[in-house]
Amino acid sequence: MSSIELFVGFKIPDTTAITAFHTIEKLGYSELKKLKREIYYKFYITGNADKFSKKIAKTDILVNANKNNYRVKKEGEQINRESEDLEKIHILVKDIGDSGVGILKTLRERLGLKEINKMEKGIFWTLFFDCGRERAGEIAGEISKKLLYNENYQECRIL
């Protein structure tokens, strides 16, 4: 069984990301210069990962071509950390126990993607800081706790 990760971003202005940015600014973290939000899916599949990535991105359920863009990360590929002059930190937030049952059922039963064995779902934040990596990591930890997740039902990983 292999896995692939799908990151669904926004072509249109992402109001949630804009609100998050302004809220973080108001919390006093002026080091944050940019912020991006993507919907995150991880699929555990049997079969060919390349073929599956093409198929999954074409399902209108996950990617609406009018407002979303997407990227796929195959197993073993590294997260891209390059970012002009800014320090880039990724944060993945997932609801504990949310295995995307509803979406999984639709993908398998209605769209025939039987090769999916299980899936995970979450929000993938990319934060761009104008400070050193250590300080950026510290701020990312504080922001996560204050704003991006509630530890009572969510889990958060700083990547």
């Binding site: 109001t15 919390l27 509630n150």
Partner: peptide, 14 residues
């Protein structure tokens, strides 16, 4: 409030 952005209630809470 605030369209439930990020999660329900958090933006107003701050």
């Amino acid at each position: 409030s605030y369209e439930d952005r990020i999660r329900a209630g958090i933006i107003a809470a701050l």
